[in-house]
């Protein structure tokens, strides 16, 4: 981009001309606050990997099609490759690095190990963050494409294998570890 200094004033927070190409953003990542001057073009995935050295979230397709970059923003799973960092002012980001409590693994991480739910491991951080989101969504009563019409709105949805497969369809695994991934999530689902 143009590197002349007068192009780089913060904007978007009122006052400055909208012609500027960078803005100051404050966001929390795994509980730690960061205030950064961000190029508007920066997506969350690149911010995490390049600027914060959190390389757990992976760049697979970079177009929202593979799910390898999945993280949680304000507790909801999203594709970090499609989230402009500048749009996340005030948000809380949770990445795979933030799932464990010190040396105590998240139950899903433990289950992935116990079930051997990966081969190469490239999609695993995205699968884990996505599965964290799936558990929360099902607990909050969010239906899926395979949830029966009789399921009462607002009540938790039981996660059988069909539900887990449907809800994790946004996470591709080129090694084909799906059967073990489904088993691992089932182990943790209530």
């Amino acid at each position: 981009m143009d590197s002349s200094p007068h192009d780089h004033g913060a904007d978007g927070t009122g006052g400055a001309p909208p012609a500027a190409h960078r803005s100051e953003v404050t966001l929390s990542v795994n509980g730690k606050p960061h205030t950064l001057l961000i190029d508007h073009r920066r997506v969350l995935l690149d911010l995490l990997r390049e600027d914060l050295d959190l390389t757990g979230a992976k760049k697979g397709c970079d177009h929202g099609q593979c799910g390898a970059c999945t993280v949680l923003v304000d507790g909801r799973r999203v594709n970090s490759c499609l989230q402009l960092a500048v749009s996340l002012d005030g948000r809380e980001v949770l990445t795979v690095e933030g799932l464990a409590d010190g040396d105590r693994l998240h139950p899903l991480q433990r289950a992935f190990l116990d079930r051997d739910a990966f081969q190469c491991g490239y999609c695993t951080p995205g699968q884990l963050c996505s599965a964290v989101g799936v558990l929360a969504e099902a607990a909050a009563g969010h239906p899926s494409h395979v949830t029966g019409p009789a399921a009462p709105p607002g009540r938790p949805v039981a996660l059988d294998a069909a539900e887990i497969r449907e809800r994790l369809s946004g996470n591709l695994c080129r090694c084909g570890a799906y059967p073990h991934i489904v088993e691992a999530v089932r182990d943790v689902a209530p």
Binding site: G64, G67, T70, R76, R77, V78, N79, L82, Q83, S130, G133, V134, E137, P143, S144, H145, T147, R167, L168, S169, G170, N171
Partner: peptide, 15 residues
Amino acid sequence: SQALLAGASGQLRNA
């Protein structure tokens, strides 16, 4: 509701 749930992925629908 059915149309929305038939579209995209969980991550995309959240955004």
